[in-house]
Simulated assay, not measured.
Amino acid sequence: MVILVLGLVIFIGVHSIRIMAAPWRAAQIERFGPRAWRGAFALLSILGFVLIVYGYGLSRRYPVPVWLPPFWMAHVTALLTAIAFIMIVAAYVPGNHFKRALGQPFVSGVALWAFAHLLANGTLNDIILFAVFLVWALFELRGENRRDREAGVVYPEGQASRDVIVIVVGLVAWAVFAFWLHGVLIGVRPLG
């Protein structure tokens, strides 16, 4: 569990600098340059992610049950993660209604993904992993929305054709992950 927590501290810590220490971040970018900052950010993010994956795998060998989710919760989680995938895709397709309505669909999608997984998983390692991502996403969402308000950001009107692209790509990505990649990468087939 220590490796999982260390990975989370590094990964979430790096991704929280803009929320918690924006002036320090700006000073470091000014001091070392944007390329060096992005390089250090990427290296620490990769290190944190690798430690999360490795630590999570180790912690699954000796699970500590905290609660037992009902069997039907897997279906609720599947529905919520499908919506989360759509939200995440919306962040990368310009001119869609989701982006206009949510402002920060990627972070909103991460929050929904983490919440959905908390519903369906009751071991200590799962609760730590998904709760940390949920709390981070909520703080990040608050910070990004505040920055948008202060900067007067207005997202453009959405187009129905872009919404269709977002939904189709999001659902296809979700289906590939839910029915195949989740089993291959995580070792759990959530939908059988």
Rank of each mutant, 00 (worst) to 15 (best):
V153Q: 07
V154Y: 08
V154F: 14
V154A: 15
V154S: 10
Y155V: 02
Y155C: 12
Y155Q: 15
Y155L: 13
Y155G: 07
P156T: 10
P156G: 06
P156C: 08
E157K: 07
E157C: 02
E157H: 04
E157V: 12
E157S: 01
G158M: 14
G158C: 11
G158R: 14
Q159K: 12
Q159V: 10
A160C: 11
A160Y: 14
A160W: 12
A160S: 14
S161N: 15
S161W: 05
S161D: 04
S161E: 10
S161M: 02
R162H: 03
R162D: 05
R162F: 11
R162N: 01
R162Y: 02
D163K: 07
D163W: 09
D163C: 01
D163R: 01
V164I: 12
V164Q: 03
I165L: 10
I165N: 06
I165A: 12
I165E: 13
V166Q: 03
V166P: 04
V166D: 03
I167S: 12
I167R: 03
V168P: 03
V168A: 00
V168S: 00
V168E: 01
V168Q: 00
V169C: 06
V169N: 02
G170C: 12
L171A: 11
L171V: 05
L171I: 07
V172K: 00
V172E: 02
V172G: 06
V172L: 01
A173E: 02
A173F: 04
W174V: 05
W174T: 10
W174L: 06
A175D: 11
A175H: 08
A175Y: 12
V176T: 04
V176E: 01
F177W: 12
F177M: 08
F177V: 03
F177N: 15
A178Y: 13
A178S: 06
A178C: 13
A178V: 11
A178G: 15
F179E: 09
F179S: 09
F179H: 11
F179C: 03
F179D: 10
W180Y: 08
W180C: 14
W180H: 15
H182V: 13
H182G: 08
H182Y: 11
H182E: 02
G183A: 10
V184G: 05
V184C: 10
V184K: 13
V184S: 07
L185P: 04
L185I: 12
L185M: 10
I186A: 11
I186W: 08
I186E: 04
G187S: 13
G187Q: 06
G187P: 04
G187A: 08
G187W: 15
G187R: 09
V188A: 06
V188T: 14
R189A: 14
R189L: 14
R189G: 13
R189E: 10
P190Q: 00
P190Y: 07
L191I: 07
L191A: 05
L191R: 05
L191Y: 02
